[in-house]
Amino acid sequence: MARLRVRNAAKSRDCEVSLPPIFSATVAVMANYSTNEFRSGLKVMLDGDPCSILENEFVKPGKGQAFNRVRMRNLATGRVWERTFKSGDTLEGADVMDRNMQYLYNDGEFWHFMEPDTFEQFQADAKAVGESHLWLKEQDECVVTLYNGSPLSVTPPNFVELEIVETDPGLKGDTAQGGSKPATLVTGAVVKVPLFITTGEVVRVDTRTGEYQNRVSK
């Protein structure tokens, strides 16, 4: 039988309690949630995928069946859509959590991340990293979403500072206004930058839009 160390608040010291065998499994036991408990941010399992609830609207004809129209995001695919449930239907909670982690390196197949407090490391595959690899710089902090303990998706910081490895030669005398040109960043991302920016400079980019923000003085 599994044992769990808990803090006994009344006696203000740690004690051990026995848990039924079900808790000894390595997979967390998730609760079921009824439609009236669906809140924005709740993570549930739907058709085998973890989903995040965005909005929940209760609708009912004057007499008759009540429904919940639920807007949700499929965390595996990113798809956002609306699904209707009968009021009172339940879904299993999903073992999903967002953790701040440091991006370490890419070994050619996996991207490696580390939780700074525990030094616990996680590897994410290309599916989990998706387009985010364009904004990942070693040592940067990002949010890794874990599903059953494994990376499901990676969200880069809203703003990152990255070096330009290739762009057409800068035009001296050009100022902030005027045209733009493509520049390739050290991560492989291509962003539009003002004409005066040169190779080797560091620029700040909004990762949500992929837009250049400003030049960062070195």
Binding site: Q65, F67, T84
Partner: peptide, 24 residues
């Protein structure tokens, strides 16, 4: 136009879906 999953029901059930989702 609506994702109703595996909902099922009788005639009145579908009329209730229609009135709340499309008629209202």
């Amino acid at each position: 136009g609506h994702d109703l999953g595996d909902l099922s029901g009788d005639r009145d059930f579908w009329l209730d879906v229609l009135i709340t989702h499309q008629v209202e």
